[in-house]
Design a protein around this nucleic acid. Structure first.
Lengths: 145, 145
DNA sequence: TGGATTTAAATTGTACACAATTTAATTTTA
DNA sequence: TAAAATTAAATTGTGTACAATTTAAATCCA
């Protein structure tokens, strides 16, 4: 098998599928005035109320070079506040505003609407997760902080 | 099951894995002075000699807004030539230079080196491909040209 | 056949993504 | 405890992504 043949690459389907799914989110996230990475941050904040930039970055596998401007945009939209920690001034805590908290209601249907848009069954979701997640978490520690 | 919980999202693992794999390519592609999307273009050209921007875009699911500047960078590195078609002046054909052709030899070990870096077995590759590809090609037609 | 439509790239503008460096605060340790 | 090392964010610079618009060429068709 010729290794350099495009069709033999594993990574292209993952790369393409990732972008394709993001594009399916667009109509729903557009209603919320969120991008997909911004939505991921909001999901985490709805669950945890407050997280610092480092923890957000570890969870999302994104560095401060990506997160800092993204969080500034969420702040400009008045969905979050960026508050420097009193105990450790290096740390910036991200907190939901009332508006940010309220947005959760409007986002409630997003996962179901997305699944519908993808035309994907629960079984298929599970198959993909099962195939991908072990590799993801085996590779994750390789990322630099 | 609470739909909005971060851990219940299917899409994050795909998004994260895609970036993680790209980061594993980095040391190998860095030696070739290529980014991952540039490498995908080169793979297609090594296989097909010449492709126009539209066909490249359909295959990689990228639009001209992404491809035009990327191809200009490959041209600046003297790996490709951008030649406007005589038969249809709207079309730009992308051709390998001698340097671009020669790069294939240097890239020959990349797939094996990547697989080694990921620590992934052939079985696992197949499982992921099998899980992902049907969804990818079911969704693909939804993309706009 | 000539104006209307379509098509292929390019352009413009916004938002990631990430390497590399910088800044400022905290922790280590000699 | 004061200099060295580490850490958390921010900054800088390059390169995607992609929506929306523009430009120019080809095709349609009244």
């Amino acid at each position: 098998m010729k290794q350099l043949k495009f069709s033999n690459q594993l990574c292209f389907p993952i790369y393409a599928l990732s972008r394709l799914i993001t594009s399916h989110y667009q109509p729903f996230l557009g209603e919320l005035d969120l991008t997909y990475p911004q939505y991921l941050v909001m999901l985490l904040l709805w669950e945890h109320q407050s997280m610092n930039v480092k923890t957000l970055g570890e969870t999302l596998m994104l560095d401060s070079g990506t997160l800092t401007p993204l969080l500034k945009r969420l702040e400009a939209k008045k969905l979050i506040k960026r508050v420097r920690s009193k105990e450790d001034e290096r740390v910036v805590n991200i907190q939901l505003t009332a508006q940010g908290t309220a947005l959760e209601q409007q986002a409630a249907e997003t996962p179901l609407r997305l699944a519908d848009s993808l035309g994907i069954t629960a079984t298929e979701v599970q198959e993909i997760k099962d195939a991908i997640t072990p590799l993801l978490y085996r590779l994750k520690p390789a990322l630099k902080g």
